[in-house]
Design a binder for these strands. Structure first.
Lengths: 181, 181
DNA sequence: AGAACATATGTCAAAATATACATATACAAA
DNA sequence: TTTGTATATGTATATTTTGACATATGTTCT
């Protein structure tokens, strides 16, 4: 069972989805903490079906191409629940931004400043995105959702994203100021 | 030219290294922002040699196995400098911690709390590691290294690591408190 | 004397991921 | 009418990364 399997099961636990639906979620909101392309998703759904962790029902559509709707099975639920709190392996970090920063003393300062100004703008835009989503969730639930609700999990990750972008932005500003000095 | 190539060139820019040296650096300090195993490094050094971006000299040793010392070439330097400020592609995020958090509402609260208490301890330990390294660098340079110095780049990444772990720890504490409520 | 460990360099197979190829329907815009 | 876009599902190929296998030297500890 790959990590992608659990990513998919986690989504199916929130309701029925097609491979296409999942691909869109991995491209958009979900992409803040996991990412996958449809070329990975379709074969993975097949594997999960063979393992009996999801079941599929084909739905005929007239206005659109037919689709395959996937649901999690009790076996799938069981596997998901076991995985959530199992020991977390320390994931190898690969940040190209910091790989570049590691050699930043080699380049002209003005160009480096422009580079990080650009990164800062991206980071701020992302932070605003998180803040808007958080505000929407808070409005819908009149505050923080209770911890039994799936919206709580979503809230926790959105909050992380917002705080994280804030931290990255602050660091970028420090770096830009240091390069100016 | 893969990202690993640039990771290696960045290290060789700081001085001669063997494949073994690089593997250790990727396992230890460098691993905070890039990671690679020796099984990836040795073939990559071969490719870089074929491209003329590094040169190798074999060193006979009496007290240890012979070794191959790699140096960056002018062509390698040129490729590295071009890469540092080139447009940064947005890297797909894959955080297993947040993938799990996405389903945290499904598990018993007390077990979830224990899980995040454990993560918090790891994060704090990492933060202390960064703080100690930062303190050592500051002591060695009597403050922040100047931005032309390679120690500046190292300092910037250590500072990021420290601030990042602080943010992650704060979020973990918030999450634990929310699960208690 | 034997075991464990750090040094040192490689290869091979499998898994994970990305990029491109491939096809089909329906709707809206130009 | 043709072009583009969203829906919908796949396969094929290449690259990246991991984990296991493989070997050899010298030192230190028991």
């Amino acid at each position: 069972m790959s990590k992608l399997s659990f990513a998919i099961l986690g989504q199916l636990m929130r309701g029925s989805r097609t491979g296409y639906d999942l691909a869109q979620e991995f491209r958009d909101g979900l992409s803040q903490f996991w990412h996958a392309k449809h070329s990975q998703i379709y074969p993975e759904l097949q594997k999960l079906k063979d393992l009996g962790q999801v079941k599929v029902s084909e739905v005929r559509q007239s206005s659109r191409p037919d689709k395959k709707v996937y649901n999690i099975t009790p076996a799938g639920e069981c596997a998901l629940l076991e995985w959530i709190l199992s020991p977390l392996p320390d994931a190898p970090v690969r940040s190209e931004l910091h790989l570049r920063t590691h050699s930043i003393h080699l380049v002209p300062k003005d160009q480096a400043i422009a580079f990080y100004e650009n990164e800062l703008a991206r980071t701020e835009a992302e932070r605003e995105g998180f803040e808007m989503q958080l505000a929407r969730l808070e409005a819908a639930f009149s505050g923080i959702p209770s911890s039994e609700n799936e919206a709580f999990s979503t809230y926790a990750n959105l909050k992380f994203g917002m705080e994280n972008r804030r931290q990255v932005a602050e660091w970028s500003r420090w770096l830009i100021a240091s390069l100016h000095a």
